[in-house]
């Protein structure tokens, strides 16, 4: 309890051990995933057969390491490409939206704001199927009218990017708008008084102020895109992003190669998270 209040030591011990147990529960699945990436056995399970790097660097079947697995390496590339597209698109639209909601007055602003939040409360799988149904409708319509086949509207990477963009943009907008709200607009006025045009003032004064939020939103978008499964599952074509490839592999049966990829993912996301914390520290000073 609060330090000024005395507490029954027995209750306190139980409470403290509950907290410890909770954090063990949180850490346990990730720990076993990481540890079994180094087990010298065909299956990620006990007994422990000794330490090995083979699941990372092995070159021969069935001891093929992740760095020599074409399918996995290719899907990491696909995921990175999708994540980059989604990230750039969503921070661009997010920044424009932030200016719209913070700087402009117009009819139905409240209504549009709620509409803008909606993608967050729609289950991802539904976002996926609705976009699938609609893009298919458009593609068929165009094909019937003109005979052109628009490949981008069939399941594939374009649709995956659009599907992820459709809800990640909401998050980018919220993050960037929150920062824009804190901006002291007298700084812009000072720039205008000193002879800057409105565009110059925004470019040289406002955007640099927003930079930490824009970078933060970009990193969150990268991570969310990389992790996304539900929306992607419905829109994916022949080029599968990493989560889809791993899911397919997992259904076939698990091998320590999956542990190795998972460990790489953990390292990658922690590194990105650290970058973000670093930039947020910069924001405070």
């Amino acid at each position: 309890m609060i330090p000024s209040i005395k507490q029954n030591p027995f209750v306190k011990t139980i409470y403290n051990s509950y907290v410890v147990l909770f954090f063990i529960y949180l850490a346990l699945p990730l720990t076993v995933v990481a540890v079994f990436a180094f087990n010298d056995s065909q299956f990620p399970s006990l007994p422990w057969e000794g330490f090995t790097w083979t699941w990372f660097f092995g070159t021969e079947q069935p001891w093929l390491g992740v760095f020599h697995e074409r399918r996995i390496m290719r899907s990491i590339g696909t995921s990175a490409f999708v994540a980059l597209c989604v990230s750039v698109l969503s921070i661009t639209v997010g920044t424009i939206n932030a200016f719209l909601f913070e700087r402009a007055e117009f009819k139905f602003k409240g209504f549009l704001y709620v509409l803008m939040l909606l993608p967050l409360v729609i289950p991802g799988i539904i976002l996926g199927i609705s976009i699938l149904v609609f893009s298919n409708f458009v593609a068929n319509g165009v094909e019937n009218l003109t005979g052109w086949e628009i490949e981008a509207l069939r399941p594939g990477l374009t649709l995956v990017v659009l599907g992820q963009f459709s809800f990640i943009t909401t998050i980018a907008t919220l993050v960037i708008a929150a920062r824009l709200k804190k901006f002291d607009s007298s700084l812009e006025e000072a720039a205008l008084n000193l002879g800057a045009t409105p565009w110059q003032a925004i470019y040289h004064v406002t955007l640099p102020f927003l930079r930490p939020a824009i970078i933060g939103a970009g990193i969150v978008a990268l991570l969310m895109s990389f992790e996304n499964f539900n929306t992607t599952l419905m829109l994916v074509g022949s080029d599968a992003p990493l989560t889809i490839t791993m899911f397919d592999r997992l259904k076939e049966g698990s091998t320590p190669v999956l542990n190795a990829v998972s460990l790489l993912l953990m390292i990658g996301s922690s590194a990105l998270a650290l970058v973000m914390i670093f930039f947020q520290k910069g924001e405070k000073s």
């Binding site: 949180l26 346990l28 699945p29 007994p47 499964f229 899911f247 999956l258």
Partner: peptide, 28 residues
């Protein structure tokens, strides 16, 4: 509390599969 959520849901679920299955860590 935040750390587990930086990794994909797939990895977390995979962790539980390794723990819970018949030949898994808890059973062993």
């Amino acid at each position: 509390c935040l750390v587990p959520f930086w990794v994909s849901e797939l990895v977390r679920t995979f962790g539980w599969m390794i723990l819970l299955r018949e030949t898994g860590v808890i059973s062993s």
